[in-house]
Design a protein around this nucleic acid. Structure first.
Lengths: 344, 344
DNA sequence: TATTAGCACTCTCGATACGAGAGTGCTAAT
DNA sequence: ATTAGCACTCTCGTATCGAGAGTGCTAATA
């Protein structure tokens, strides 16, 4: 579609703009890059690129800035050099090492990871826990709390720990509860929570008319105990990201603040990425699901063994340093994968 | 210090400025308020108020705006009418009713409370859980997880549920763990976590030379399990607050973002308030501990019975609607107190 | 003596103008 | 096909100006 020379010019423009957020003129390109072209020729190429939709002009007689399509082409041309950048190797490794010590607690691990990522990259960083939807039931315990309240503690094979406060009838003793959890643990061990949900619904339909047996009661409690409307989402780096020149505009700031507070929506996007493999880059409004005009997301799933279970990523302006971001996220995701896989 | 008339004029100016963030001129005051004074007289009073430090002038020949001291006097003069404002009564009650349904889970309750508060008031709202420092030990359980990992689940009398992942030697069976938790539960029930910490340290000093008895082991594990560096902090409403005209300035936005991300510092302030009784108002840089120049905090502790255990509040620009904020926080804190006390 | 009317003064803000600078698009030459 | 040359366009910073709002001061007033 695009000849090689045009593509090279485009990439040069994108790179230049990423380094410094000002419209790029033809003169700069000819001076900075050894394409052996005159400014006039570059201008012609730029005009073509604009017609094709890769560049745009803030106004006549200004330089060009990349469109989302322009960034996309740039990012696609990047995919070969996805591995570590030399310059941030050491810092990144140091960061990863510091995380090694808390690898046992997946929540703490992800929280620290986002904190370190944002401090390190100056972008907003995000991570989601292994989704409760796909997690594998390991064990559930019920602890009698105050009055008729019971705390259900769910452990999954992925290392998730989830609490839920339930209100059961006041007549269940701890002994009863232990029998219930014993039953559930033997019955459900190894199933995914989704399967268990389905199983429970079937059971409930079957036992509908049965009176208050322990089992039917167990199942009803379990249905509640296994239902977690939201997965945990970690976000860090708002203050960092506001330091970028791209956020000198108040509207921009409001937009990213809204994105942060709308955790539900953010989760949807990240969980979709959690299911796939490798680094994903979503640029600007590419994905209709993100109303993030002006922002890009670089994210990757992390895995336990071969199975993707969660996702970690960075959000920045569309003018973000993709090659660095991709490298960083890639390294981070591999690190998480290694840690989560090794502990088996 | 200030005669009554001056004080009235000051309050009128503050109120006017709160309604509309523009410097207030002498003409407006005479027209709007029936003080029976001429603009010239008001100007004289304003000049005095400025000398005394209650007002400031953005530039010669502009109206006056309140200083932190001015807001302070205004707020102090307000304390009589601290109870519900008539206009937002119904909305506030509706909000509180909606929260009633999740009162069992204190974390969820506080999270929802902050969400509703910020949606309702358009200010940033915050809440802290009962501090683990002062919480009362109710019960601890250890669940063997993967490998040598153990999940400690701590329940407090205040309704807190805390998890912690520990790495104990791999040779402890669930049976051992149960004996340990049994021992701890009988030993520590009813003590505050702080007391227990002290007890543990004493025990450890005593048993230092003893070899690996179950008890000394229990104590060591417990020491770790009861240590939670941070309490949970809920913050909501960033996107809301950015809609206020006070945040048209990027610097202001950055400042509040930093305040949000510096949870450690925020916690310090709120936990101090958690220990006291009633609504506290901190205006601007009044409290040296908050580097929040330009922001005010209206907060109140909530109690269980007679004992303050946590804190809920709202943060807004110094130009915030204090009388409304105080009323709202007061109502909210009372609601929390009632809910947390009744469940006994 | 406290208040007020009158008035000159000061400062902001929006509109307008203008020149420098950067970069373009087009045309004609190579 | 590329390029040199040049006129053109647009932004941005600065300066200017007048309207408007509000003040501070002085002298008159109750």
């Amino acid at each position: 579609m695009l000849n090689e020379r045009s593509q090279k010019v485009l990439c040069a423009i994108v790179q230049t703009y990423i380094n410094n957020p000002e419209p790029v003129g033809s003169g700069f390109i000819t001076k900075r890059y050894a394409f052996n072209l005159s400014p006039a020729t570059v201008r012609n190429i730029m005009a073509d690129l604009e017609v094709e939709g890769f560049l745009s002009q803030p106004h006549t007689s200004a330089g060009r800035i990349p469109t989302d399509m322009g960034y996309r082409l740039f990012v696609n041309s990047l995919h070969s050099e996805i591995e570590y950048q030399p310059d941030n190797k050491s810092t990144l490794y140091r960061m990863v090492n510091e995380l090694e010590s808390i690898k046992d607690d997946i929540n703490a691990l992800l929280e620290e990871t986002t904190k370190k990522l944002s401090g390190f990259s100056h972008y907003l960083s995000v991570a989601v826990c292994p989704s409760t939807r796909i997690s594998t039931f390991n064990r559930i315990e019920f602890l009698k709390h105050r009055g008729s309240q019971v705390v259900a503690v769910l452990l999954t094979d992925e290392g998730l720990i989830k609490n839920k406060v339930l209100d059961v009838g006041s007549d269940l003793s701890q002994r009863h509860l232990n029998r219930i959890s014993g039953y559930l643990n033997s019955e459900f061990h190894g199933y995914s929570l989704i399967e268990i949900r389905a199983k429970i619904l079937r059971e409930m339909a079957k036992e509908k008319d049965l009176c208050d047996t322990l089992i039917s009661r167990a199942i009803r409690i379990c249905k509640e105990a296994l239902f977690f409307p939201y997965d945990d989402l970690f976000i860090s780096g708002l203050a960092e990201v506001l330091g970028l020149p791209d956020f000198s505009d108040v509207e921009k700031i409001k937009e990213i603040s809204r994105a942060i507070e709308d955790k539900h929506h953010m989760l949807q996007i990240l969980e979709k990425i959690s299911d796939t493999d490798g680094v994903k880059v979503i640029i600007g409004a590419e994905n209709p699901m993100m109303q993030m005009k002006g922002f890009s997301l670089v994210a990757s799933s992390y895995k336990e063994g071969d199975r993707p279970i969660g996702c970690v990523g960075m959000i920045g302006p569309t003018r973000m340093d993709y090659s660095r971001a991709i490298a960083v996220i890639n390294t981070t995701a591999r690190f998480l994968t290694r840690v989560l896989t090794d502990r088996k």
